[in-house]
Design a protein around this nucleic acid. Structure first.
Lengths: 256, 256
DNA sequence: CGCGATTTGTGCACCCCTTCACAAGCGCCT
DNA sequence: AGGCGCTTGTGAAGGGGTGCACAAATCGCG
């Protein structure tokens, strides 16, 4: 089980520009580079060095160069990278040239916030439809969109050509919703419900679990606390950092 | 720069029980195991095999065994793992035996949802205080907590002994908030703002960026679309999966 | 009491990712 | 035109994670 057998571009299929088969770790960082590049563009920068962009994105400069090299040579030695050109390239690789439509299922506490989150629209995603199973929520209008019953998903999906489904339901409902999304042709799912989803091969699932993030932090907090078994202050951890704060710029690359 | 120089437990410091120095990848999976174990416990299971728990957590059984072996031998060969015992062990390692207090800064769209999210409390985290910089939000009551001005952070932090800070502000305010959190002794930060935070060494930052998750999905969607350059249907991606849905149980372990 | 079925714990090989270090290339200044 | 400084792109080394395959250990049953 869990055979990651990505066919591997069988050689004869040369219709698309490149499809360089990027490493997953690189793909996960490209959006961060993109955000940093947009910031730079707004600040009036025309070019940026790998060092500069790496700092803005919070990574090592060598890593950044290797990442960018995977999608071609778009830098100029001695100068750096053209910001606008690089933005176009990354957006092209990520498939952001077309605006993608998102269906959000589950308009509870979290789903409500996601529906109103403007960070999606500003990055090329359009929340095309909201769904919920609870009759008390169906009909409600959020951010200019009316919440529909989840049974309408098939009809609406064909109309809006949904490309990504977001699940923000309780865990008990998540699998059923995932099945429905898959049934209408959705092959990319972002799951906020704290549970494992079973999906057919070819469907990508990414999971975001807020409680898990806190638990990982808790572990490190726990570890740090037990390492600091020496100081005399037996009470709280308010040692108040002698040196000026914000001294370094490391980002503690844990996980991700 | 970015020298990850975790001191490495200099040998003489043997006061704490174990501190097995777990691999990061393992730490990131432990919460998932814990959730699966709680489900099993509620369903009445007393023991579980590595295969069973691995399925429930969506990972390989060999990986699970290796992960658990890092925190000691708590299984019985030929039988499996004692569910209750394993729960205790994992919670102990993750430092969840004590209830940790969380300070949430930024009660906008997302922060509002986080403040009301019951998934935190059910896993041992207590949202102890809410902060915002906007006077229009200060004083509002959410889930039984009153929103305070961010300037009160120092006083409240000492009273409540905050151990984790959550930033749900706009990106423009995030760095300043992080600095304030660090100044009052917080050494673990969960950042929802789309930006890189600079923090002193010893402070852990985990970042959750919802738009980035969508962009990663977009890449895979884009790639899948270009690989499927063959079929006659020129229109949308509604090929409707011939075989019965929910056939396999792979989870497409992309990233994380 | 011994044997077989079952399951854990782990040595090992493989692969991906990270990081260093440096050659190649580009622009600018003289 | 030539040289110099700066930056990219990349080969190679090292580390960490994953998964296989198997030995060790435990239980139950005859």
């Amino acid at each position: 089980m869990s055979q990651h057998r990505h066919p591997g571009t069988p050689g004869r299929a040369g219709a698309v520009p490149a499809l360089p088969d990027l490493p997953e770790a690189t793909v996960a960082r490209l959006p961060e580079y993109l955000r940093a590049l947009h910031n730079l563009a707004e600040t009036g920068h025309e070019t940026v060095s790998s060092e500069g962009l790496a700092n803005a994105a919070g990574v090592n400069s060598a890593k950044l160069r290797k990442d960018l090299s995977h999608l071609g040579s778009y830098g100029t030695r001695g100068v750096g990278y053209d910001v606008a050109l690089l933005i176009d390239q990354i957006e092209s690789v990520l498939g952001l040239t077309q605006c993608r439509s998102v269906a959000l299922v589950g308009v509870g506490n979290l789903g409500h916030a996601l529906a109103g989150y403007d960070g999606f629209a500003s990055r090329g995603f359009r929340i095309a439809a909201l769904f919920d199973a609870s009759p008390s929520r169906v009909g409600e209008e959020i951010n200019g969109l009316v919440v529909r019953h989840v049974d309408e998903l098939p009809r609406v999906a064909t109309e809006e050509s949904i490309s990504i489904g977001v699940i923000a339901t309780p865990a008990s409902a998540a699998q059923a919703v995932a099945d429905q999304l898959v049934a209408v042709g959705v092959t990319s799912i972002l799951n906020f419900a704290p549970c494992v989803l079973s999906v057919p091969e070819g469907v990508d699932v990414r999971k975001v679990d807020l409680a898990i993030e806190l638990q990982i932090l808790s572990f490190h907090e726990h570890r740090k606390a037990s390492l600091t078994a020496l100081p005399a202050t037996g009470g709280s951890a308010l040692t108040a950092l002698p040196g000026g704060l914000a001294a370094t710029d490391n980002q503690e690359a844990i996980g991700t």
